[in-house]
Amino acid sequence: MQINDCVAVLTGAGSGIGRAVALALASRSCHLAIADINEEGLAETARQARAMGVRVSEHKLDVASREQVAALPQAVIAEHGQVDLLINNAGVALGGHFHQVSEADFDWLMAINFEAVVRMTRAFLPFLQERPAARIVNVSSLFGLVTPAGQTAYCASKFAVRGFSNALRLELQDTSVGVTVVHPGGVATSIATSARVSADVAPEEVERNRKQAQKLLRMPPERAAEIIVAAIERDKPRVLVGNDARILSWLERLLPVNYWRLFPALAKPAAPSNNRP
Rank of each mutant, 00 (worst) to 15 (best):
A24M: 03
A26F: 03
R28W: 01
A33P: 05
I34H: 05
A35K: 01
A35N: 03
A35M: 03
I37F: 11
I37N: 05
N38S: 13
E39M: 10
E40H: 12
A43P: 00
A43K: 12
A43I: 00
E44H: 10
A51P: 04
M52H: 14
G53D: 13
V54F: 09
V63I: 13
A64Q: 04
S65R: 14
A70I: 01
L72R: 05
Q74E: 15
V76G: 10
H80P: 08
Q82T: 04
V83R: 01
L85H: 01
L85E: 01
N89C: 14
A90Y: 07
G91H: 04
A93R: 09
A93P: 00
G95H: 08
G96Q: 06
H97P: 00
F98W: 10
H99P: 00
Q100L: 12
S102W: 11
A104L: 10
L109P: 03
T121F: 05
L125Q: 11
L125H: 09
Q129S: 12
R131C: 09
P132W: 01
A133S: 13
R135P: 02
V137Y: 11
V139P: 02
S141D: 07
L142N: 10
L142D: 07
F143R: 02
F143G: 01
T147K: 13
T147Y: 10
P148Q: 13
A149P: 01
A149G: 11
